[in-house]
Design a protein around this nucleic acid. Structure first.
Length: 300
DNA sequence: AACACCGCCTGAGCGC
DNA sequence: TGCGCTCAGGCGGTGT
């Protein structure tokens, strides 16, 4: 499932392949994946909103969302058109040079043909993802303003004040993209284990100093995951079609019932914040000082 | 206003 | 081998 590290990998791998390329045409194979507010006549006018004829100038990310800006190179970013891509759970955005034996997958919903002959394909079997069109990048900024800070750039005081304003548990609060943008089920579980924080702890009762540790750990966890190419569980791949290796470093996610890598006790599982949650009852306790960075480092 | 919960969607994995 | 069931989950919408 693409969370922040996976989306950042997609962005980084697509950068050299897309910047400066002109979009020659766009194939819309499944219109429902596109959310487009503007007028549309006979299904034809979707193409301009999908950047047809424009030059891709930059790729941006906020949390799990990826934006592609395009226009004429003289245009200010805020005036350029933009798309926001959500990969949902099973989405991918892959750039490739077409080959003779290439078959179009039934879940290839959108295909952009670029001026160097390459193709950018949005594929999403489950269709939890999608593409949103914007008349300007300024509108993308507006949309992103409703989200919390990007997790890679999170500031402890901001996170602290957001957490203080909710009575929910930590797990639910950290999954909420308006609190902090970019964390999903995998990384929240990994994060709480590393910090020795119980997922059911009330978000508003976490000491500011502990939130500061949490904030530091968020950044180091995500940076580590990005460096290892993200987590590939089922079908996540980056913009080059390659999987990641961070799943080998998961300490709790997907390890329910297996021994805790820190204390050896079998890891517990429960539905918390509406999500399957894996944690160690001994290492992630309600009371006492959380052990920031607990059990990082060595594996097995 | 804050928060819980449903429904979307398909493939993997399982038991029989 | 193959069927049908359950589960996975980000996020917007609806209900409490």
């Amino acid at each position: 499932m693409p969370e922040l590290p996976e989306v950042e990998r997609v962005r980084l791998t697509l950068l050299p392949r897309l910047i400066g390329r002109r979009v020659m045409s766009v194939q819309v194979r499944r219109e429902e994946v596109v959310t487009h507010d503007g007028p549309r006549v006979a299904g034809r006018s979707l193409q301009p909103a999908l950047l047809q004829g424009l030059i891709i100038t930059s790729l941006h990310r906020h949390g799990k969302q990826l934006a592609i800006a395009a226009g004429e190179s003289s245009q200010a970013l805020d005036d350029q058109r933009a798309l926001v891509v959500h990969l949902g759970m099973t989405g991918s955005l892959i750039s490739a040079q077409p080959r003779n034996d290439d078959a179009i997958d039934k879940h290839d919903h959108l295909i952009w043909l670029l001026d160097d002959g390459s193709r950018l394909t949005f594929n999403d079997p489950r269709r939890f993802g999608g593409v949103w069109t914007f008349n300007s990048f300024a509108e993308v900024r507006q949309r992103w303003a409703a989200l919390g800070e990007d997790a890679l750039a999170a500031s402890a005081p901001t996170l602290n004040s957001k957490l203080k304003r909710t009575r929910r548990n930590l797990k639910a609060a950290l999954l909420d993209q308006s609190v902090i943008a970019g964390l999903g089920n995998i990384y929240v579980d990994e994060l709480l284990f590393r910090c020795g924080l119980h997922p059911k702890r009330r978000a508003d009762r976490i000491d500011a100093a502990v939130v500061a540790c949490l904030c530091d750990e968020i950044k180091s966890l995500l940076a580590e995951a990005i460096a290892r190419g993200g987590s590939t569980l089922r079908n996540y791949v980056d913009g080059d079609g390659h999987g990641g290796a961070f799943q080998e470093r998961h300490q709790v996610y997907g390890r329910a019932g297996l021994p805790c890598l820190r204390c050896g006790q079998p890891l517990a599982t429960a539905a918390i914040g509406g999500r399957t949650t894996v944690y160690c009852k001994r290492c992630q306790c309600y009371r006492g000082e959380p052990r920031a960075r607990a059990a990082t480092g060595k594996q097995q």
